[in-house]
Each structure stands twice: as C-alpha cells, then as structure tokens.
Design a binder for these strands. Structure first.
Lengths: 271, 271
DNA sequence: GCGAGCCTATTAGTCCTACTATATGGTCAG
DNA sequence: CTGACCATATAGTAGGACTAATAGGCTCGC
C-alpha cells in the first residue's frame, strides 16, 4: 500500500479518527476522485502547489489588491492541507511581493506596484489564464528597451561560446518551427543567449522573465493565427551583426525583430 | 492511536531562554558562533530575520554556489529557532532563486544566474556588505538602459500627478542634500516618479530594484568622497524636458545624469 | 570481477497541537 | 468626550512525530 497515485493527500494510511472532522469532502482514502481539487498537479511539492494556485488566483484577478484572504486556519482546512504547508506557500507569495500578512489583519493582497512582475513564477501565473493585454503591451515595451541594448552589448562582448549558443538556437528554430514546443524553446534560447552574451549579471536576471514572455506570446500568436511571418530572417540578421561585432547594426536588427513580433502579437490580440 | 499526547506537560512557565539574557548557546559549533546575536534586529518577524541573515551570507559570498547548508535540523538548532521558522526562511530564499532544497541532498546554493538579482530584498542583501564592484557596474549599466528609455516614455505620458511627484522630490533633494538620509530618499523618489510616469507596469516593477541601487550607490559615494558634484542641475534638466514633453531631450538628459553618477561612483570605488 | 537491483541511512516534506505576540475594536473609568 | 484597558481574532513560533524521496552502499546473480 505504498504507492498511492496522486489521489490521497493525507499521509496517515491508518484509519483517521472517525469523528474528528465533519469533512464535507470525502477524504479519498483509496478513490482518486479529483473532483474537488487536484492540488498536486500544479507542482511537485505541496506548498509549491498551493503557492501556484494562490498565485494564479491573484494574477487572474480572483483576489484583487486590498482583498483579505480567509484566515490561515480556515483556508488551510478548506484546502485539506496543514496550516504549515499553507503558511510556507504564503511566505513564497510574500517573497514575491504579492501579499502581506500581519496578525489580526490577516493576509492581504498588495497593490500591483508591489508585485514582482518580472519574477519567472509570477509571469507564469500571469500567463496561466487569459493574458492581460495591458500587461503584454508593457512587457513588449520592456523587451523593446532591453533587448536592443543587450544586442548592442552582445556585439561588443560576445565570445566563442556565446556565438555557438546563438547559432545552435537558430539552427533549432529552423529545424522545428515556432509551431512546435521545441521551436519555441529554441526561440527563447536564442534570446537568452543574447542576454548572456551581454555579460551583465543584472541583464541575465531579466533573461528568465523575458524568456517567459517570448515563449508565451509566441505560443499565443500561434494559437491566434496560422503562421504569421517567418521570423528566421530577422533572427539571422541579429546574429550576423553580433558575430560581426557591429553594435549599431545588432541593436537596429533586434529593434526590427521586436517591432515585427509586437506587430504580429497586436494583430492576434486585436489590440 | 498514534497520538496519545494527553499526558503532555502543560508547558512549564519556566522560560528556557528568557528575554534579556541572550542565552549562551551551549554548543555554538556549527554555523552560528557568537552567542550574542540578537537575530531579531534584522527583521521584525523571525523567519524574515533568518532569511535576511542567510541572504546576506549568500550574497556576501559566505556560501558559494554549489555549497550545501547544514541540515535543517542542525541549522535551526544552531540558530536557536524552530525548524518551522527556519523552513519558512528557506522558502523565501527559494522563491528568490537563491537556493534549492531536495530530500537527501539538502539545501544547496544555486548558480548565480538563477538568482533574482533585481529583487529588492536580494539587492539589499547584496549591498549589506561591501558591494561587489562588478555587480555595481552591471546595475549601472542596466540603469543606463532603463532610465533614459523611461524618461522618454515619461515625457510622452506624464500626467499632472507625475509632474507633481517629480517636483516634490526635486524640491526635497534641494532642501536636504544627498548627505542626509532624507535627501537620498528624495533622490530615489525622483527616479521612482519617472519610472511611474512611464505608465508601464513592467518598468514600475523595476523601480523598487533601481531605487535600491540609486540609494545605496549614492550613500556609497557620499561615504567615499566629500560632496562629489551637485547633481541637482542634471535632475532639473530631466524634469524640465519631461514637463515640456520633449522626449528626446528627456532621454538625453537622463543619460547624462547617469553617466555623471557612474563616473562619480567609479571614482569612489577606484574601478 | 562486475553490474543490476535491493537496502539503508539521511534529509527534506508534511502534519499536528499548543502556545505566544500583535493589533483591532469596543468598553469602561475618569 | 477622552484615554486607558481588556477581549478577541489572527498570524507567528515552537517542538515533536511521521512520511517521502533519494544517494550511496550492499548484496547477489551472472
């Protein structure tokens, strides 16, 4: 009886005390009825799964800034997890600036400007539901600021490894197309390689966030229209300029690339 | 019948480590050595204080990427806190990309590129000790990319409130100087107001990080030399351009401002 | 001798329960 | 009306017990 697939959250396999809780949910001892709340699929560790759920709920607007969550006792009980696991999830959200907890006041959702929108997890939560058009626009604008500058720096500082990474990624983009998951990953790798090639730790930190944006918006474009435009030539132009150490050309090529992507995204979102 | 705790002793009132006495830890062998470490001053809540301590230790190079921390049982015991509080601190660090925990492997410090360097807390930890010159350079480079672009956008989009915030901040900078804490706060507020005036959520998120950099580096400059240069005229030029909706001038003025700040910082760091 | 696979020891993960600290809001004395 | 104080709700901390995952050693078959 060791292997209990995904169903049971309770650890105690021995029969729980019969009357210790009213338990509206039929605490599945052996039936894997996920009707209530899976809660495990969202992440491997339990507190991570809870953080994911809360995070997507907040980013999805289910809880708005200023709202107060149910008390930790009630909420953890409602989820069927220990208060401990729930608290650790809250710590994660707190660390990302989404909520704030104080005794007697409870746990409240912070105003948007406190959110760490560029945190990879937060971005993933933001794109878990329908992406907010306003947010996508903001992120593209940020890309339009960061990436051309990064391309310029990359043209000045790239080393052999940087170029290899970029070439590999571009080749992978050619092989698979952006219609495939592998292709989108390659696209993200390409942009990531450029950020790395700038040899700037602060920029590299943004890579995770920008990579997420690249990936999600690309997927979104694909879903909306057929194959918008072939993005390979634009990418190749950026690569060539960086390989040639032509900083102004690299910056300009990257700007063109992003403008095109923004244009396609705008069309597919009707904005 | 596993939990038969009925006979548990009713929490003896004899407090084990009472208040004023710092409770000389019997065995300060492992990770914490001097018994007189308050551990509460670093943050209001205990797990926050632990996170601060660990974060500064990691950012300060005390633990290097790949290192494994002592086991949670040992470490929490060495700190004299419950494993619970310690675990919550670890969750915070995990959320910021500093460490990763897995059973049997323990808690390991992640490679630098996984760190959320732009997280305000992480930046604070980075500047808690001697700032790494390389990191400061990276952050200034990022400022040089972000802030001129933000100033350009601000010139196009600023509203009445934005201008008021900027004017107030500049006035406060004039009143107090950068030699005072209030003056540095005003400096940060000025830059923050510009980021806000760009009306871009993603940029606003960077405001917290950039604000921290502004503040810390300014303080550092002050400590190193007397009064380097009067930065007010440069700031005023930026404000004027934004007020006049002159986007190119705003961008250029901001670029000049940052170049000057970078120059001063470089001189004071000998880099 | 050597590799596949079981075994074990270690460590994080989860749960439970009880208690403390903090902040709000209402109450009562002055 | 005002201020101090108490009641209450909620997060914070503690410590103990059990579970799950897994690296590394050990056994055993080949």
């Amino acid at each position: 009886m060791r292997r209990r697939k995904g169903a049971a959250i309770r650890h105690s396999v021995t029969a729980p005390p019969p009357e210790d809780l009213p338990a509206p949910d039929p605490d599945p001892s052996l039936d894997s009825e996920p009707g209530a709340r899976p809660l495990r699929d969202t992440g491997r560790r339990l507190h991570g799964a809870i953080a994911n759920r809360l995070g997507t709920a907040i980013l999805g607007g289910e809880y708005k800034p200023g709202d107060t969550l149910s008390s930790q006792v009630d909420f953890s009980e409602a989820l069927g997890v220990s208060r401990n696991a729930f608290r650790e999830a809250v710590q994660v959200l707190t660390a990302k600036g989404l909520v704030e907890s104080r005794p007697k006041l409870g746990t409240r959702v912070l105003p948007r400007e406190r959110w760490n929108l560029l945190d990879p997890d937060v971005l993933a939560w933001a794109f878990a539901g329908e992406p907010d058009a306003q947010l996508v626009r903001s992120l593209f604008e940020l890309r339009g600021i960061i990436e051309p500058a990064a391309a310029r720096l990359a043209a000045e500082r790239r080393d052999r490894d940087d170029l290899r990474r970029m070439r590999d990624a571009l080749a992978a983009m050619r092989r698979h197309t952006l219609a495939t998951e592998a292709g989108r990953t390659a696209d993200r790798d390409f942009h990531d390689a450029i950020l790395r090639a700038a040899h700037n730790d602060a920029l590299m930190t943004l890579s995770a966030g920008i990579g997420a944006v690249v990936r999600w918006t690309t997927q979104f474009k694909q879903r909306a229209r057929g194959l918008p435009r072939n993005p390979i030539p634009e990418h190749a132009r950026v690569l060539d300029a960086i390989a040639a150490s032509d900083a102004p050309a690299a910056e300009e090529a990257m700007r063109a690339l992003i403008d095109q992507a923004l244009d396609d995204t705008r069309n597919s979102m009707g904005g």
